[in-house]
Nucleic acid binder design. Structure first.
Lengths: 334, 334
DNA sequence: CTGAAAGCGCTTACAG
DNA sequence: CTGAAAGCGCTTACAG
């Protein structure tokens, strides 16, 4: 049985109010009594009960974090890093993380999870939303804590949003392909219902237009985010005989595409230039090493935590979108 | 302001005790009053406050989860899957997850984190321990909740432990290399202070012995778990001119090793056979695709959750070690 | 079959 | 400068 505040008070010969105040530094206490209290706490190995504290103060020092985990083993790189960034920053400020992985990317699951969090008292929610349309959040979140979106933009709910600069990153990538002389550039993208992919596709189109290349819808193929789908999309792309370069908007699809190209014996970049997404170590050891767009995943998490801390501290400013720069890592695949 | 139990009781015209009992199904209530209560809860959109509930009942329906995240981007695959397994199972039983990522693999950080968890009331702790020696846990954990180790065995603290069958998996891999005619097999391993790696190294030695091959210490190289170290270890291995096969005991090192071999133009498997660890999608698209040992990461998480639930339910049996089978995925690198 | 009341371990006005 | 006491929202013996 751990000691409670009453025992500390008794041992120190003061009231529990005083103990509470020295713990929280919340009103002046003379050095003498402060010392007595500290010694008592030390002697009893007292640890404040944060459940009681939460109940009383309506603060939990916990923030909820919800992000998707796709069935594919390899889909988790990104969000694991994001989570780590969030955690590291939050810990420095005494916050803990209540985690939920959402494996279905369904709005229903997301709602259910948020309601679970609600019953537990969280001081904030960081969310990678499953869909672009989030007006349903209004009913559940009930304004009791700030929400920060991460990785994906959302409509229907006003909140801060931390993103990679998907547009600029993608634009640069396509621009590089064009500058290398490519005119028939295919695009393979994941689910378009998510802002991340939308931004990447938009940049692709805009880059083509800006360089006077006519955009052909047939050169965009959409797949779900899996190796198998990437593989299938890769093969379908190869049926269009004139395409000389490929921009693949996420790392799982990129793997599948590489699988397809390899199997068909397509030489990269001679027969097909490739640019993929996310700078994971494995992209350095494909044949040839891949040119990719690096996303600042850890930094995204850190930034989200930072903004969350501001909001918890009631910083008064309109919700904002923060766009963190990506980096084009040029290797040998284009 | 969300409704509380008192308001529900008033609206339903019963005592709060009765409301509590219909919520928790904890004593008989007539269908009539039960219905009134349910309608009142519905009307007020009542959600029980689980902080109050925890304070009173000394149960939080939350379990703590601590695992390492290495600085390398790609180190997180494994534990993200484990976490997802834990979460999925726990959610089915109404439990939530308090997550902490430990980036330093230091015992100090681990202690500190556990103490943080302690103050928050957790019903159980699932831990991938940073070291093999855990007698310090006794002081911190104080027997108030069950502990389950995951991925790594530990001495000094009696608890259930969920592992991949690292020994068998590795034994099979080395055996395969031997059967293919290799006699001079190098081993590249991560930090030997962790049971996971120890088991893998032990299997390597035993397989050699069993097949009458003399074991040479110089053929074992230990590195930290990073691409760069894997690369360096790969190069060092190449200085031993007679080695024809390599067993690499984790996926990050495997990447680095592949990088080194590729750079030196070593043909795989003709000049050097390679078997690596963990079946991630990227291992299918290296040149050639890699033979690897698949670990059941998600299943490890599930199993840990299962055992934890048993322990929470006070199943009475001695702590046990659970070893989940790995699978040798044979591709073209050996 | 149900209610009144104590109490979980704190924080925080109020009072002196 | 410090204490007594109310109360956060529940659960759970106790009583009838």
């Amino acid at each position: 049985m751990p000691a409670d505040i009453r025992q500390v008070a008794e041992l120190a010969g003061v009231s529990i109010a005083t103990v509470s105040h020295v713990i929280n530094n919340t009103r002046y206490v003379t050095d003498g009594t402060k010392k007595k209290v500290q010694e008592a706490m030390e002697a009893l190995q007292y640890k404040p009960n944060s459940v009681a504290r939460s109940l009383r103060s309506h603060k939990s020092n916990t923030i909820g974090l919800i992000f998707p985990v796709l069935p594919s083993d390899t889909s988790n790189f990104f969000f694991a890093n994001v989570a780590h960034g969030v955690q590291t920053k939050m810990k420095q400020h005494g916050y803990q993380l209540l985690l939920s992985t959402n494996s279905t990317e369904s709005v229903e699951d997301e709602k259910e999870q948020i309601e679970l969090f609600n019953s537990k008292l969280i001081d904030g929610l960081i969310l990678a939303p499953a869909s672009e349309e989030l007006s349903h959040l209004k009913e559940i979140v009930s304004n009791e804590y700030p929400v920060v979106f991460i990785d994906r933009r959302a409509r229907g709910y006003e909140a801060d949003c931390i993103l990679s600069d998907n547009y600029m990153g993608s634009y640069e990538a396509v621009k590089l392909l064009i500058e290398k002389g490519h005119r028939k550039i295919g695009l393979i993208t994941g689910n378009r219902g998510v802002s991340t992919n939308n931004d990447r596709v938009r940049a692709y189109k805009q880059a083509l237009v800006d360089y006077g290349i006519s955009y052909m819808p047939g050169r965009i193929i959409e797949g779900r985010s899996s190796f198998e789908d990437g593989y299938a999309c890769g093969l379908r792309m190869l049926e269009q005989p004139d395409i000389t370069a490929l921009f693949v908007t996420n790392n799982i699809l990129t793997m599948g595409v590489m699988g397809a190209l390899q199997e068909r014996g397509i030489r990269i970049p001679e027969q097909m230039a490739v640019i993929g997404f996310d700078d994971y170590d494995w992209t350095r050891i494909t044949t040839p090493p891949l040119t990719v767009i690096r996303q600042p995943s850890y930094e995204l998490g850190e930034k989200a935590a930072e903004i969350m801390l501001e909001r918890i501290a009631k910083v008064d400013k309109p919700p904002q979108e923060y766009s963190l720069p990506t980096e084009l890592i040029v290797r040998d695949s284009c």
